[in-house]
Amino acid sequence: MLAIARQILWNAEAFLEAAERQDLVDDRLRLGVTELIACTWLHRFLRRFREVYPSVSVELEVGLTGEIEKKLATGQIDLALQTGSFDREAGRTIHLRTYPYIWVAAPALAQANGTNRSMVNLLKGPVLTHGRNTVASKELARYAEAKRLAMNQVVYSSSLASSVQMTVDGMGFALLPAALVRDQLQSRSLVQIDIEWLPSPLEFYARFNPKRVPRFVEVAAGFAAEIANSGN
């Protein structure tokens, strides 16, 4: 009965799409995103979605990839915009964009440390980065272990925005996605530092289960790919 009910709803939505009356689709989109997306192009995506589906409300969940993926698997959200790799199947996965990491610091801190910058010297002082269980943090830990470098000065934060502000305040060097600090680099409140090691870039994906969600979720995933590749 549930499958039949879903098919009826999909057919009704398909009828409105064929008539180009997506404005009559009255539903909700339960959206889960990571903080990097929330701090970069999320607002542009929401505006694009609202232009086409003005009667669809959006329930937004911002969290770590693991939390977003779990809620997608349990049906608590319809569309996940998250990083790979994945612990659970979703149904459909669309690649969005690759985001490289860079090392940054406040200008005064960078100048005080001169040109003798290496991972050996960097890890002797505070290093700010994202959560302990992120891919970048795990790769940093493996690198430090292989080189027998201490990790006791690494400061993990579940909030990327807080990491950026702490870096601007001169509290340490930081390993962050380049897109996140674009504005700070342009204003020179942060400067990029050349270091011999960087983690793997972040790979972002749109994920959803087409058997459990309305038709407009796939359209929304397409909008995400369009917006993600239109700029930072």
Rank of each mutant, 00 (worst) to 15 (best):
T34W: 00
D23T: 04
E218V: 01
M171F: 07
N229W: 00
G84P: 01
E196W: 05
I94S: 07
Q22W: 05
A112I: 04
F86D: 07
A5G: 02
L128H: 08
S159D: 06
T93K: 14
S187I: 00
G32E: 04
K211L: 13
D26V: 12
S162Q: 13
I68F: 09
Y143R: 02
M1V: 13
A18F: 11
K71D: 10
P177T: 01
N232F: 09
L64Q: 14
Q165H: 09
T129W: 01
Q82Y: 07
G125C: 00
F15D: 07
M1K: 09
E218A: 15
I68R: 07
N152C: 01
D26P: 01
N209W: 03
H130L: 13
V191Q: 10
S57N: 12
L96D: 02
M151S: 06
E196H: 02
C39D: 07
L180C: 03
V56S: 08
H130R: 12
E139T: 03
G222F: 11
N116Q: 14
S200K: 02
K138W: 00
V25N: 03
L175Y: 02
E59R: 15
E226Y: 11
L60V: 12
G114S: 08
D169S: 12
F49M: 10
S187Q: 12
G75Y: 07
G66C: 06
R88Y: 15
T167K: 03
E35V: 13
R132F: 12
F208Y: 15
L185F: 03
Q165W: 08
R30H: 11
L109V: 13
Y101I: 04
Q111F: 09
E226D: 15
H130D: 09
A14E: 08
V135G: 02
V213P: 00
D183K: 14
L2E: 14
M166E: 05
L79R: 04
R212K: 13
V155N: 05
I94D: 08
K147A: 06
L202P: 01
A174T: 07
A224E: 05
A110Q: 09
N116F: 03
N133R: 13
A225F: 04
R215Q: 08
D26T: 14
G172T: 11
R44Q: 14
T34R: 04
G172E: 11
G222D: 12
S157I: 00
L190M: 07
F216H: 14
N113Y: 10
R21W: 08
A105K: 05
L176G: 06
P126K: 14
S200Q: 07
V56N: 10
E218H: 08
V219P: 00
T129Q: 10
M166I: 00
R30C: 02
E145P: 00
E145A: 15
A225G: 14
L29D: 08
T74P: 00
A174V: 07
A225W: 04
L72V: 06
K124T: 13
G32Q: 06
E59M: 12
R97D: 05
V62S: 10
L46A: 12
S157D: 13
